[in-house]
Every structure is written in structure tokens, then in C-alpha cells.
Computed example of a mutant assay.
Amino acid sequence: MARAYSVREVVKMKKNKIPFTGVWQDAFANPESKGVWFIWGQSGNGKTSFMMQLCKELCKHGRVIYDSFEQGTSLSMQETLVRHGMMEVNKRFSLLDREPIDELSERLAKPKSADFVVIDSFQYTGMSLARYREFAGRHRNKLLIFVSHADGNRPGGRTAEKVAYDADQKIFVEGFKAIAKGRFVGPVGEYTIWEDGAKRYWGAKGRTGINATSSHQQ
């Protein structure tokens, strides 16, 4: 039988947080450094750029591994890495070329494996809900970040919707903004990916964004 914890015991538990500062803290506060994040958005809204900016920021706090199921090591991915200056975090960022989930799981089980894991995209993995739960349960000590296609403003597909519901942090990318919808929301609650693009997209709706850390569009 599992142990039951008192309120005092739970409150006193020490949790490792990601010490975001500036625009990152404004958007996402200081979330726990493990668990599940789910990021979704339609093509052409800045999702790829946001992922590169997020990975670059996370490299300040640990090692990142990015399993690219869609682009792999293609020319488009090469250009994305160059455009976002990922050479600056070369020692802390690694890219996998469509590594199957079972092999990725074995990699993550090894000592000194990456702290932050990006899987892009969820639909390309072919994971069932049961397989996702087994994978996430095995790697509770990691921060698992799933990137997803969107159907309108919802994750694409029933399984993706269920995984998003389960996630600790949910981030919807629209109009070059990454909007926090999960358990960790900063005082602003959104991150501007590309300032000019966001102004054009949201201008007619009377919304303003926070300053971007990158002026590149993807």
C-alpha cells in the first residue's frame, strides 16, 4: 500500500524549479523542472521558432535533447538551427533524427542523460494513450515536452487532447505568441515569439504582447 502524506509533509517537500527570469518568468512563472508539457499550434504561427527559443533558454538550466520526428536532420532543420543561433548551446543541445520512442526511452534511462526532452511531433510518434502513460511514468525525473499539431485551437486528435489534459503545463501557440494555459502562469501569461508578426496578427483584436527575444519568423 502506498504511503499517505500529511499536509505538512507535502508542503515541506523540496521541489526543483526552473529559475526562469525576465520574459520567460513573466509568461510561465517558475515551473517544476520535471513533469509533462504539451505545446500545440497550427502551422505558420511560430511554433518551431518558439521551440528553438524555449530550448535555448532551457539549455541555461540543463541539457536538452530534441527528437525531431517531422524534420529530422533535414535542410529545413539545419536552417532553423542556424537561424536561431543554436551553435551557442552546442554542448547542451542534441538533436535526434526520428529516434523511435522505445530507443529514446532506453537513452533516457541511462545515467547522466538529458534533463529536458522534446518530442516533435506527438502525432508522428504514433503513441497510444497507454504507451504515453508508460513512457511518462518511466521518466518521471525528466521534463517531457510534447509538440503537437492543432485542429483549430485544440490539439490534433483525441489522444493528443487526452495527453494535453494530463500535462502539467499547456502552451498554445497562435499568432506568434505562446500562451500559457496550464498550471504555471506568470503575471503576463504569454510570450511573444516574433514581435512584428504578433502585432500584425493581434492588432485588429486590440491585444499587445511582451517583448520577444528573437525577431525571426518560422
Rank of each mutant, 00 (worst) to 15 (best):
A212P: 11
D102V: 10
R138D: 12
M86E: 09
L54K: 07
T48F: 06
T208E: 15
D67A: 14
L95H: 01
A2N: 15
L108Y: 09
G137P: 01
I210M: 15
G209R: 06
V82W: 11
V118T: 07
C59Y: 05
E79V: 10
V163H: 00
S128K: 03
F146N: 01
G46D: 07
R107N: 12
E88T: 12
R107I: 10
M51V: 05
G22I: 05
I145T: 04
G85Q: 08
M51T: 08
G206F: 14
Q25W: 15
V10E: 11
D166V: 09
E161K: 13
L129C: 07
G41F: 09
F69H: 06
E161V: 08
E195P: 00
I145G: 06
A212F: 03
C55F: 03
F146E: 01
G137A: 02
V10R: 13
I193S: 00
G137L: 05
W37F: 13
R158W: 14
G72T: 01
I193W: 03
S33E: 13
L143G: 03
E106G: 03
A204H: 11
T48N: 12
A136I: 03
F50N: 05
K60F: 13
G206V: 14
K12M: 12
I179C: 01
R200C: 11
K17A: 12
D26E: 15
W40G: 00
A160L: 04
T192A: 01
V163Y: 02
S43E: 15
A4Q: 09
A114H: 00
A2Q: 15
E134A: 13
Q25P: 02
G175T: 02
L75T: 06
L95M: 09
T21C: 08
T192K: 03
Q42M: 15
L81V: 10
D166P: 09
D26I: 07
A164H: 07
G152M: 09
P31A: 03
K112N: 13
S128W: 06
C55V: 05
Y124R: 08
S74V: 04
V82C: 10
R158G: 08
S68C: 10
P100R: 11
M86Q: 08
G137W: 04
K205Q: 13
V188T: 02
H149W: 14
L58F: 03
G182F: 04
E106Q: 10
Y132M: 08
A198N: 04
M86T: 03
S94L: 12
S33W: 10
G203C: 11
A29N: 15
E161W: 12
Y66M: 02
